[in-house]
């Protein structure tokens, strides 16, 4: 089995899976019907991408592996998503901030991944770029609205950014498998998109009258499976059926 490629796909896909799961929690509980519908659309895009990645990963793994066994039947330490995407929906500002901070990264990544030598990854990236371009637009617009809205919304938006900022640096951490695949022209060295990321984010925050946090202390661990305390609860929900009723078709 191509272990590097398999692990690299999980690194890409788990971010989509967990971000989609978090947005899915909100369905029916958002600030307006229109935003509910919009957030659900983004969640559906992310799950769609997840499935494309996992179906590819299952092919590579062979045996009984399916998109579902990969999605639902791993231990927490085996999920490779960044800490950012597992952070909870504390309020709508947190949801929007988490999404925006991920979306900007996601788009920059896909813009490179579309030129991957791996045809499947390239195809998934090309399709996803259109979706994620819209995600950035949507979450970016909301950052501006909440940042430069009322005093209350400004405070909440700033608090969310301050709270989540510590998870941004991990996005650019290069794992062993990503490095190996980047050398073969299949994966992306994410350290190369770091400058563009912070430039984009800084510009938008300025427009939204928000401060870019100055803290230089960052958290990491997600990519190597060491997650925040929130992850266990998320998985308990997500895996409930597969764990309680193993080996059944649904």
């Amino acid at each position: 089995m191509k272990t590097n490629l398999y692990n690299y796909i999980l690194e890409l896909a788990d971010n989509c899976l967990i971000a989609g799961q978090r947005l899915g929690e909100l369905c029916g509980h958002g600030p307006s019907l229109e935003t509910d519908i919009a957030c659900t659309n983004i969640s559906l895009d992310l799950f769609g991408q997840t499935r494309s990645y996992f179906q590819y990963a299952a092919d590579i793994k062979g045996g009984d592996a399916t998109e579902d066994s990969i999605a639902f039947l791993r231990y927490e330490r085996e999920y490779k998503n960044v800490l950012l995407v597992e952070q909870p929906n504390r309020d709508f500002a947190y949801t929007v901030a988490r999404q925006y901070l991920f979306d900007v990264f996601h788009l920059l990544l896909l813009e490179k991944l579309q030129f991957s030598q791996d045809m499947t990854l390239s195809a998934i990236a090309k399709k996803s770029i259109k979706e994620v371009s819209y995600h950035v637009r949507f979450s970016g617009d909301w950052i501006k609205r909440l940042g430069d809205g009322t005093e209350e919304s400004h405070e909440k938006m700033q608090a969310a950014i301050d709270g989540l900022w510590q998870y941004t640096n991990e996005l650019f951490e290069v794992t062993e498998e990503a490095k190996a695949l980047a050398e073969e022209g299949m994966g992306i060295d994410v350290s190369t998109i770091k400058d563009a990321y912070y430039q984009n984010v800084t510009l938008l925050f300025e427009e939204a009258t928000l401060n870019v946090p100055e803290s230089k202390y960052f958290q990491k661990g997600g990519k190597s499976g060491i997650h925040t305390e929130h992850m266990g609860y998320l998985l308990a929900d997500m895996q409930y059926m597969q764990r309680a009723y193993p080996n059944m078709n649904w």
């Binding site: 659900t40 559906l44 769609g48």
Partner: peptide, 27 residues
């Protein structure tokens, strides 16, 4: 909406999510 986070497969999850979203649309 109760079951979106707990749907037993990815296929079921997207179908349910799309269905609940439709209900928002219908509302």
């Amino acid at each position: 909406g109760n079951w979106i986070t707990r749907a037993p497969s990815l296929r079921r999850k997207v179908a349910l999510l799309a269905k609940v979203q439709d209900e928002a649309g219908h509302g």
